[in-house]
């Protein structure tokens, strides 16, 4: 479905070309998108380490690869710097040193090229690229990544959080477990692979509080079981339990808000088992399930570029002098002026 949408988009002529710079955690992404929603390029450089993200090391990695990523993005789109109309960057939430690297690069480009600067909320960008690519209109959004676990939906001018984790995020939880079990970082893909071979469901804590979830107790308990059960069974039970909790709170939010669409976004959204569970839940409710292609689930520059266009068309331009980063920027603090349900 996403492909046809993209091709349709390319037919319409475009006047705004947005450069998007993503640098909230381990990914330095540069993407170029036009105002018809066509993704012209989407380059990602991902900081890798066996143990997790060291913010300073990650930010150094980003400054080393920034220029490279930019020139690749331009050549893939067959454009030059002067063709760009606006410079969008992820302003938060995220790791301070990484955000500063991206922001500095964006400020430089904006001042040098004399093109408007647009500050984008990373989380809203995930939602908007998801809606644009899948055609979801007014969904309940399940946003899962290394640092975020939130159930979000649009209400009265903002994306409002209806449920979230009370302690650690799902990605963080899986990564920490993987590290304790001696698996490498990021843990998600390895845990998913091992879980496929798991057969026995181990009894684990199942913590749902209204529309909130909690993973810290589950993590502690799982860590105490390492070595006592086959790792495949541990990974299998981890996925079954944690994902059931998440799908349950989504269903509760959908029932409460009387919405019949679910949109899954964020890096953990690439997990096949999670997608299958979301799809089954939606089928049973007679609702529609949407998830963007994997390339746009993970952190990427294209989503920042696209959200930049949405802001820009409503006149949201950020003066360089006020473009400080916002490490704890909540999704509810962004006014969604471009909304059409």
């Amino acid at each position: 479905m996403s492909n046809t949408l993209n091709e349709n988009a390319s037919i319409t002529s475009s006047s705004i070309l947005s450069l998007g710079i993503e640098s909230t955690a381990h990914t330095f992404g540069v993407g170029i998108v036009n105002d018809g929603g066509k993704v012209l390029s989407n380059i990602r450089y991902v900081y890798r380490s066996r143990t997790g993200i060291h913010p300073r090391e990650a930010s150094r990695f980003m400054s080393r690869h920034a220029v490279e990523a930019l020139s690749e993005a331009l050549s893939q789109a067959s454009l030059s710097l002067k063709d760009l109309s606006i410079i969008s960057f992820s302003r938060g939430p995220g790791l301070g040193p990484c955000l500063r690297t991206g922001a500095t690069f964006a400020r430089f480009l904006s001042s040098y090229l004399k093109k408007p600067l647009v500050g984008v909320n990373h989380c809203v960008a995930h939602i908007e690229i998801g809606r644009m690519l899948t055609g979801a209109r007014d969904p309940v959004i399940l946003y899962l990544s290394g640092g975020s676990t939130q159930v979000i939906s649009y209400l009265e001018g903002v994306y409002r959080i209806f449920g979230e984790t009370e302690d650690i995020a799902i990605g963080n939880f899986i990564d920490t477990f993987a590290r304790s079990a001696g698996l490498s970082f990021p843990g998600g893909p390895i845990v998913e692979e091992l879980a496929r071979k798991g057969r026995n469901l181990i009894d684990l804590p199942y913590v749902v509080k209204g529309m909130n979830v909690s993973f810290s107790g589950l993590l502690t308990y799982l860590e105490s079981l390492i070595g006592k059960y086959p790792i495949e069974d541990l990974c299998y039970s981890l996925q079954e339990t944690a994902f059931s909790m998440l799908v349950e709170v989504c269903e509760r939010a959908m029932a409460y808000l009387k919405k019949d669409e679910l949109l899954l976004v964020g890096g953990v959204g690439v997990n096949t088992r999670l997608r299958e569970m979301c799809r089954k839940m939606c089928e049973e409710r007679g609702a529609s399930f949407y998830v963007p292609p994997a390339e746009f689930c993970v952190d990427n520059g294209a989503m920042i570029a696209w959200n930049g266009i949405l802001h820009y068309t409503k006149g949201d331009i950020l003066p360089v002098s006020q473009s400080h980063i916002l490490t704890k920027w909540r999704v509810e603090d962004v006014s969604v002026k471009w909304w059409e349900g």
């Binding site: 469901l201 199942y206 059931s244 799908v247 349950e248 569970m277 089954k280 839940m281 049973e284």
Partner: peptide, 13 residues
């Protein structure tokens, strides 16, 4: 009963 959940987990919950 929810079909997305593992049947054992579903019964337990």
């Amino acid at each position: 009963s929810k079909s997305y959940r593992n049947p054992h987990l579903d019964r337990k919950i």
